[in-house]
Design a protein around this nucleic acid. Structure first.
Lengths: 213, 213
DNA sequence: GTCTATATATGGATAGAC
DNA sequence: GTCTATCCATATATAGAC
């Protein structure tokens, strides 16, 4: 007869990882209980050590997973046939939507920042791939500038920062903001408005006309 | 002879609160150790129970404290004699600067959102005072619209959302963003740029000219 | 108002069987 | 590859002295 459980290393590893993302995201690095993660994955705590070496390895694996996911999603954006303004709108809406649809990434980044990004800094995997995401944004920006619809002198990292700030805050602070202003930021109706607001913000920032003085 | 320590209730209570803000902010609600807080405050753990009733009471007191502080700071902004554009700039810069100077508030809000704002929702003190902060922003917006320098159809909560998103992200995600893009968001030099960027974003959003299509 | 001491609980990490 | 059992560290919460 075989062992107690069917031996499904890949499946069990994946279950642990999924449970870990949730538990770390909702209770923090220290607050997360390996016991809870193991129970949720329908496996024993010992397996956390067997597969990931412990709390830190598990956390790092979860963090790498969310970064891998957003990189893949970004690469899949299709801007073919769009003019610079429409392409910029699409990039903006992507970012608003992505964080709403992937709140776990937002939560894990909050945890990671709580720890001053010490784990991310130690991850070869993540750092190595960091730069790639700005290429579509940068080429869209250049096209628009060449066409005269965007103004010159824009730092592409700052432009990215504007988009990420709006998209991230919309999810990361939805509960406190919602409580204070009685507004459910991530409801479908509000999401439509936020998407449009973000496009207006980005296009206003890039508009060639100087701000009125 | 008197007791072991000089009896300084107000001072000790304040020390506990200060230590608690730091510990909660850096380790989360569950991760925070009452032992560490007590040690930092140079007092014993038993006092946490005596003054605040336990972990939750202490956390709630810390949260109320940061909200009280930002409300006070907002009320102190002086817009007298400024036109709507300059007033809007000042409000924008205030928000960028405030979060940089008060990273503990940013961290505590992140924790609170991790818990879906359940403690904030139970705080009479905080909820009651929630609305007041938008008054100067709203009147500046109306003045600018009346003068024709801002476009109509702006939701004041959304305008606030833009400012807070930029200011908050700048601090809350400084470490991950900095690691990925090799940019120290909160350095003095970058802060100057971010302040200017935020003003351009806000004024671009409010500018009467439609975005170029 | 503050301390010390302690009862109690919880969970991390590892060893060893199958 | 997975489980059970256990050792050990740590922290909470309270009781009681001063």
């Amino acid at each position: 007869m075989s062992a107690n459980k069917p031996k499904e290393p890949e499946l069990n590893r994946a279950s642990l990882l999924a449970a870990a993302s949730l538990e770390f995201a909702s209770r923090g690095f220290q607050g997360a209980r390996l016991e809870v993660i193991a129970r949720e994955a329908k496996i024993t705590r010992a397996m956390v050590y067997y597969y990931f070496g412990g709390r830190e390895g598990l956390y790092l694996a979860a963090l790498e997973e969310v970064y891998r996911h957003i990189r893949t999603s970004e690469r899949a954006i299709d801007l073919d046939g769009l003019g610079p303004v429409d392409a910029m709108r699409k990039l903006t809406c992507f970012r608003i939507d992505y964080y709403v649809e992937n709140p776990l990434m937002v939560a894990l980044l909050a945890i990671e920042n709580q720890h001053k990004a010490e784990y991310l800094k130690n991850s070869q995997e993540i750092s190595a791939r960091a730069g790639i995401s700005l290429e579509p944004l940068e080429s869209t920006l250049r096209q628009g500038q060449a066409a005269g619809v965007f103004r010159p002198g824009i730092d592409v990292v700052e432009l990215h920062q504007v988009m990420v700030s709006l998209g991230m805050f919309n999810v990361s602070n939805q509960h406190t903001f919602g409580a204070v202003f009685s507004r459910a930021l991530c409801s479908p109706e509000q999401l439509v408005r936020t998407r449009e607001m973000a496009c207006e913000v980005v296009l206003g920032f890039l508009a060639p006309q100087a701000s009125p003085l």
